[in-house]
Design a protein around this nucleic acid. Structure first.
Length: 583
RNA sequence: GCCGACAUAGCGUAAUAGGUAGCGCAACUGACUUGUAAUCAGUAGGUUGGGAGUUCGAUUCUCUCUGUCGGCACCA
């Protein structure tokens, strides 16, 4: 399927369709004022000020109908170029357009596009006639802050999408439906992986036995990788004194997003939102020589953030989550090498999980935003240039994004897209010259001088919760063998005659360390097989008289219809192989 | 948090122009003893998310709270 943003024609159609929608809205709501209507990955939208009117589902249908009418009428779309002054005069009653026009320098030529009774300020380009826009659909609507600023008025945003023909449109709409099916929240419920309950609290999902198995496997997996790379794992408390976060600076930046402080015997404590300060204190616990560095402190750490209620989303974003966190304390000379090791680890892990659809972002500070970022221009220059150099040397493709850095330093983010919703960060590696200084961390260098180390903050699986959400969506719940809560489901054909044999096989597999289920209920074979497939078990063993007689086993793999009959030895080899290759 | 929509049994859903709710799957009981995607019969399960109001009567209308969903804003 063509991607709209990558396709010139489709981009133009979608943008023109935004104008078409605006015209229809203007017909139905003569007082409507329009802000901007760009093309985006999923089609187009237009931000509209409708005064006190709010859009409903029925309105969306009405607007769509009006759009069809205008399209049928088939007016040509004309481009017109006017001066900034003419534009200011023409749109003098439209504060939104004036706002846009005033951004242009004096003497700029500004273009307008007109179709029938509707004119809009626009850079273009557009299709030649509205009759080219036939296969479109308004998909959703919501509030959206003017200029993306929560302090501003909320406008109404209507989203739509336009394709060249009906098949493409239907295919796209079908994909939207399909995406809902692999939403981790649905899979998590269907397969009994996690739950949540109002009485526990929103944004606080709980892992059921099956979910905890996955969680545990992920924990063991990443800790093993890290140990091999010289990480030392620690355990630190989920609560910390407020002073700890005042020292780090997190309190100033994030107290609004932390659970409120608990006052106990004159002291204030908070649930920790991240683990950097604890790890800094662990480093500070002993004196370090340059010979000891890098020191790599890792933790599978429980964190709590008071996320805005509207931001909560299953296990992808909750108010409790578990970070695959580590802080690497390095000398300036070691920084580059250590950063490379982190990047290598990220992509090594992605290979194991078959993650290929990701985007690397070099997240930089916004130098204009004096509030958000640690005020030390020299430090930022050094950190950002250092990070950029390393990324270039590693040959990593990335885009730079301003204003995405942490308050203490720039970072490399690896972002992915979920089934439903906005892109998020899966892995991150952050360069920090700031916190080590705030905590006055030192090591003794060759020359006997005390120096401050650089810290790399990094998370590979990000949070185990979010990573699990991602894997569930990517696999549609059909997890690879090593992660599956039930790896092998055994079904005896007839309990009376084959249960003993099945038990023998069951014991052997359990002994070998597999998670096995023996389905000895009195149900029809077909019923049990169906259920085994619905539960997405990787292997379903069917054991009947044939297998008993030949002392072998028959199995079906998930997503395959044929049955394989092999000896137990062969089956063990296959299992071993899949466990080893993590397939 | 903001804008909007939604909330019916464990899950998926139906219905009521206001007269206290059906169905399927799951569960439970019994029969059947099964060879590759749903055996048959029966039983139980609901203060229709919580609270308040209007009404003779509210699951249905109104308000409010809570939660969920779609976006926006936020994301150390």
């Amino acid at each position: 399927m063509k991607r709209i943003l990558d396709d010139e024609r489709l981009s133009m159609m979608n943008h023109s369709c935004a104008h078409l929608m605006a015209q229809a809205v203007k017909h139905l709501y003569p007082n409507a004022l329009f802000w901007v209507g760009p093309v985006v990955e999923e089609g187009f939208y237009y931000d509209i000020d409708l005064g006190d009117v709010t859009i409903t589902d029925e309105d969306l249908e009405k607007i769509e109908k009006e759009m069809k009418k205008i399209s049928k009428d088939g007016k040509r779309i004309y481009r017109e170029e006017i001066t900034r002054e003419e534009a200011l005069e023409r749109f003098k009653n439209d504060p939104y357009k004036i706002d846009l026009i005033e951004r242009f320098e004096d003497g700029t030529v500004i273009s307008c596009y007109t179709q029938g009774d509707f004119t809009d300020l626009c850079r273009g380009p557009h299709v030649d006639s509205v009759k080219e826009l036939k296969y479109f659909k308004l998909t959703k609507f919501s509030g959206a802050y003017w200029k993306g600023d929560a302090n501003n008025k909320m406008l109404q945003r209507i989203y739509g999408v336009c394709y060249e023909n009906e098949e493409d449109l239907n295919e796209y709409l079908g994909e939207l439906e399909e995406a809902k099916e692999r939403d981790h929240r649905k899979i998590g419920k269907d397969l009994g992986i996690f739950m949540s309950d109002d009485l526990v609290g929103k944004g606080l999902p709980m892992y059921l036995p099956k979910g905890y198995i996955i969680w545990e496997e992920l924990e063991n997996y990443i800790k093993q990788k890290e140990r091999k790379l010289g990480y030392q794992h620690v355990m630190t408390p989920c609560v910390g004194n407020v002073e700890l976060y005042k020292t780090s600076g997190h309190w100033d930046h994030y107290k609004e997003n932390m659970f409120p402080a608990m006052e106990v015997e004159g002291e204030s404590f908070v649930l920790r939102p991240m683990n950097c300060p604890h790890h800094m204190m662990i480093y500070a616990n002993s004196l370090h020589s340059y010979k000891d560095l890098p020191i790599r402190i890792g933790e599978i750490a429980h964190d709590f953030r008071y996320e805005a209620s509207g931001a909560l989303k299953g296990i992808e974003r909750g108010r409790h989550f578990c970070q695959n966190d580590a802080h690497l304390f390095v000398t300036p000379e070691q920084m580059k090498d250590e950063f490379k090791r982190v990047v290598d680890l990220i992509f090594d892990v992605y290979k194991d999980f078959n993650i290929t659809d990701y985007r690397c972002v070099l997240s930089l500070r916004d130098p204009e935003d004096k509030k958000k970022y640690h005020p030390d221009d020299e430090m930022w220059e050094k950190a950002e240039n250092g990070l950029r150099t390393v990324l270039n040397e590693l040959g990593i493709e990335y885009t730079e994004e301003i204003g995405e850095a942490a308050f203490y330093g720039p970072k490399l983010d690896v972002n992915v897209k979920p089934a439903v919703g906005n892109e998020y960060t899966l892995s991150t590696c952050q360069l920090d010259f700031c916190l080590p200084a705030k905590f006055d961390l030192k090591y003794i260098d060759k020359d006997g001088e005390k120096k401050t180390p650089i810290v790399l903050h990094r998370a590979i699986l990000g949070s185990l919760d979010r990573f699990m959400a991602y894997i569930l969506e990517e696999t549609k719940g059909a997890l690879p063998l090593w992660l599956s809560p039930v790896q092998i489901n055994i079904i005896p054909v007839n309990n009376e005659y084959h249960l003993e044999y099945a038990k023998g096989i069951y014991n052997k597999l359990v002994e070998a360390g597999y998670r096995v289920n023996l389905d000895d209920r009195n149900e029809k074979l077909g019923y049990k097989i169906r259920e085994s497939i619905v539960n997405k078990n990787p292997y379903t063993l069917i054991l009947g008289q044939k297998e008993v007689d030949a002392n072998n086993i028959s199995y079906r793999m998930y997503s395959e219809e044929e049955t394989h009959t092999v000896s137990m030895d062969e089956f063990s080899k296959e299992l071993n192989n899949r466990m080893r290759t993590r397939k």
